[in-house]
Simulated assay, not measured.
Amino acid sequence: MANFKQKTFESKKGTTFLFQHPGVRMVSKINDQSKNKHGVLSEERMSELMLKHVIVQPKRTIDDFEDYSEYMEVVNKAYAFITGNDEEEQSDDNEEGSEGQGQA
């Protein structure tokens, strides 16, 4: 069995979460299962799947979040992590940081 990568993420409220990549097949299943019969993304279903399969610590449900903004921040970051979009954000940040260092 493959060794899946993990990443820690700290929300703006200061809560630290551990994300674990569930594998390419599960990411594909999450994308498929998150859509309704018309192919429209269901926020609630996507969130439930992210909380179940990707956000491994602390284990939470949608109802455990006290405010919507933290809930969406965590779910969106977890989705960016499993789809590889968080790496693009990091490389953009690194490029901006290195450009700024060269100017004095």
Rank of each mutant, 00 (worst) to 15 (best):
K77W: 02
E96K: 15
E89I: 08
F65L: 04
D64W: 03
G84K: 13
Q90F: 08
V75D: 00
K77L: 03
T83M: 02
S98D: 11
G100H: 08
S98N: 13
Q103E: 13
E88V: 14
Y68S: 05
K77S: 04
Q90V: 10
G97Y: 14
E66R: 14
G84T: 06
V74T: 02
D92A: 12
N85Y: 12
G84Y: 05
Q101E: 15
G97W: 09
D63S: 12
V75L: 03
K77F: 02
Y79P: 01
I62A: 12
S69C: 10
D64C: 05
F65W: 02
Q103F: 15
K77Y: 03
N76R: 09
V75S: 02
Y71V: 00
G100S: 06
T83N: 03
E99W: 11
S69T: 14
M72V: 12
D63N: 10
S91R: 05
I62T: 13
F81W: 05
A78Y: 00
Y68C: 04
D63G: 15
G97I: 13
N94V: 07
T83C: 06
G97S: 14
D93P: 01
N76K: 11
S98A: 07
F65I: 01
D86W: 01
A80M: 14
D92W: 06
M72S: 13
A78W: 00
E87Q: 06
A80T: 11
E70I: 03
N94K: 13
S69R: 15
E88M: 11
N94P: 02
N85P: 04
E96P: 03
D86K: 04
E88D: 05
Y68D: 03
T83P: 02
T83F: 00
A80I: 04
K77P: 01
Q90M: 10
D86C: 10
E70M: 09
Q103L: 13
Q90E: 14
Q103T: 06
D64Q: 15
E87D: 14
D92L: 15
E87G: 08
S91T: 10
G102K: 09
S98Y: 07
E87P: 03
Q103W: 14
K77V: 01
D86Y: 03
Q103R: 08
E66Q: 09
F65C: 02
E88Y: 07
D63T: 15
I62Y: 04
M72T: 08
D64A: 09
E66H: 11
I62Q: 13
D92S: 05
F81V: 01
E89N: 07
Y79C: 02
Q101N: 12
F81I: 01
Q90R: 09
D64T: 01
M72I: 13
K77N: 07
Y79Q: 04
E96N: 15
D67Y: 06
E89C: 07
D67G: 10
E88Q: 12
N94D: 07
Y68R: 11
Q103A: 06
A78C: 08
D64L: 05
Y68E: 13
V74P: 00
M72L: 14
G84E: 10
Q90G: 12
F65D: 00
D86T: 03
Y68N: 10
A80V: 10
E96D: 11
A80C: 14
Y79W: 15
D86Q: 05
F81Y: 13
D67F: 11
